[in-house]
Simulated assay, not measured.
Amino acid sequence: MATYSADYLKRLLAAVERFEEAFECWMETQVESDHVSSRGMLPTVWTKDGQDEATVRTRELDVAEAAGAAERAVAVTGAKIAVAGVGVVDPIASWSLMSAPRALVAPQDVRATAARVRGRLSMMIDEAEAASESATPGFAPSELHEVIWTAAAAHWTTHQYRVAVREASEALTVHWKERLGRNDVTDTSFWQQTLSAGDPEPGKPKLAWPGPAEDQTAKSMRGGLAPLAGALNNLATGLNLTVRNVATHTRDELTEQEGMERLAAYSYFARLLDQCEIRRAEKPEGT
């Protein structure tokens, strides 16, 4: 079972509460039915007569936005329902289908799911807080570098650990290629050029550890910053070869422990890159 920090779970709880508020606000504009009354053929909600269309549309968008955040909480808690002939359904993600014929869910399904999610999250928060007080420190994937966890989260919570690692590794490359405007090269060439020694060229900025080249601030490092710059380049190459390429070109699933270790390696690399300076070639005078 994945481990989540109390802070992360509290954010999910707040997202569910925001969804409930937006949902009830929208329901004020709707006629509410259920599967018995609709006989399984009709929608379970429809707009009340005399409602302002702009207001209804605005409230619908509010629900859609809130549902996007609350869906993560459903995945974390596993609070889905079974629908005959369809399978397992997330009522929060499927809220908009209530307005369609043969609606999969009814308003009460949405409310009950949100309440169940809140209950499970509250229990998980208590457990996470209790665990944080123990002598053994926990590991919370949600506390990884933002770029890494944002890309991995949706797959991690559904136990697709290999895909989570692959998406995280690719997201870090995309993040820096966009920041440096380097969508003109392959991923491997990008890291080789960006973290290589030497001065940047026009259109080819570099990431460099801050400080003068002769600085020897790290006690265990000899020869100034040059060895560290090379180490970053080697780290990027090593991670791509041993983690990204394997996760991309094989279908062998990872265990949760294996996935955490790989994500942690990329998270550490991402934090090192955040400390680097972006160095760009100076434009010639008169241009």
Rank of each mutant, 00 (worst) to 15 (best):
E20N: 03
G203C: 10
Q192V: 11
D187A: 13
D126N: 13
M124S: 04
T55K: 06
V243T: 04
T55N: 06
I92H: 02
A84V: 10
S96E: 03
R102I: 10
G119D: 00
E146V: 14
S99K: 10
S94C: 07
S169W: 03
N233H: 13
V63F: 00
E214M: 10
E60W: 05
I81N: 01
R116V: 04
E253A: 15
R222V: 15
T287F: 15
T157K: 03
A93W: 06
A152L: 11
P284S: 14
L144H: 09
E170F: 08
Q51G: 01
L13K: 08
S142E: 15
K80R: 14
G224E: 00
S38D: 11
A231T: 13
A152Y: 08
V117A: 02
H159F: 11
S132F: 10
S267M: 11
L228Q: 06
A106I: 06
A135V: 15
S96Y: 01
L228C: 04
S37F: 11
A197R: 05
H175A: 08
S33Y: 12
E282R: 15
S94M: 05
T77D: 01
W191P: 08
F23M: 04
K219T: 15
G198V: 06
P284H: 14
G138I: 12
E261S: 14
I81H: 01
L61K: 05
A84N: 07
W149G: 01
W149M: 07
H175G: 00
E20A: 09
S94Y: 04
A112N: 07
L104F: 01
G68Q: 03
W26P: 00
A93P: 00
A197T: 10
K219M: 14
Q51W: 00
A67F: 00
E143M: 05
D49F: 13
L254V: 05
L263Q: 08
K10R: 15
L12C: 06
